[in-house]
Amino acid sequence: MDEAKVIKLYDAKIGSFIRITSIDLEGVMRRRLLDLGFVRGAVVEVIRRSPLGDPMAFRVSQTTIALRKEESQRIEGELV
C-alpha cells in the first residue's frame, strides 16, 4: 500500500482509518462538518454502511456521524 494514498471517504473500506486532507464543501455543510470534528488532520474511522448502502457512518472525535454519498465523496484523506 502506498504510504500516502489519498482516497475519498466514500470509497474507503469499512474498518479503515483516514486522516482528512481536504474538504471540498462550502457553506453550512462545511461549517457543520467542522463542528462535528471533520477538520483537516482529524483521523476518521469508517464504521459501516446503512442497509441500503448509503449513508455511511464514520467515527470522528469519539462520536459516530453518518454522512451521505454527496458529502462523503467530497471529503478526502490519506489511509493510516
Binding site: 456521524i65 453518518a66 454522512l67 454527496e70
Partner: peptide
C-alpha cells in the same frame, strides 16, 4: 439543491 445532511448515531 439537495441540502446538507449529518446524523449522529449516539
Amino acid at each position: 439543491v439537495p441540502t446538507h445532511y449529518t446524523l449522529e448515531l449516539p
